[in-house]
C-alpha cells in the first residue's frame, strides 16, 4: 500500500484506478491464457484415454494410479503423464507395483 492509498482509505475515497486496472487485467489474462490451451476438460479426457489405450497395448498399467494433467508454469504448458507399470504384456513381472513409474512428458508450448 502506498502513501496515497493510505490517505485515500483514511478519507474514505476511491483507490487510484491503476490498482483496479492491474487487478482486472490479471483476471482477464488468467482467463485468456487458459482459453488458449482449451485442452482442459473434454479434450484432455479424450487424450488421456487414447494415451492409455496405446500404452496398454505394450504394458499393463495400474489404472488406479494413473495421472494425466496439464501443468502451466510461466508461459509454458506441459502435459505430464504418470503411468505406473504393473508388468509387461508378455507376462513376466518386471517391476514391482508402483516401484517404477513411466513418465511421459510432452511439451505443448502454448
Amino acid at each position: 500500500m502506498t502513501l496515497r492509498d493510505l490517505i485515500n482509505k483514511l478519507l474514505g475515497r476511491e483507490t487510484a484506478s491503476a490498482n483496479t486496472a492491474r487487478e482486472r487485467l490479471q483476471l482477464v489474462l488468467a482467463h485468456d491464457r487458459v482459453d488458449m490451451s482449451s485442452l482442459t476438460t473434454d479434450l484432455l479426457d479424450k487424450m488421456r484415454k487414447e494415451i492409455l489405450d496405446v500404452v496398454a497395448k505394450y504394458v499393463e498399467i495400474d489404472f488406479e494410479e494413473v495421472a494425466v494433467s496439464l501443468e502451466t508454469e510461466d508461459r509454458m504448458t506441459a502435459l505430464v503423464a504418470n503411468l505406473p507399470i504393473k508388468r509387461t504384456i508378455t507376462g513376466d513381472i518386471k517391476f514391482k507395483k508402483n516401484d517404477k513409474e513411466d513418465k511421459i512428458q510432452k511439451d505443448i508450448k502454448k
Partner: peptide, 18 residues
C-alpha cells in the same frame, strides 16, 4: 498519471507480460 497511480506502472506492465 503514473505518479498519481491513475495509469498502470512500467513494473505492472512488464511484470504481467514478463
Amino acid at each position: 498519471m503514473m505518479a498519481s497511480q491513475e495509469m498502470l506502472s512500467i513494473d505492472d506492465v512488464q511484470g504481467i507480460l514478463s
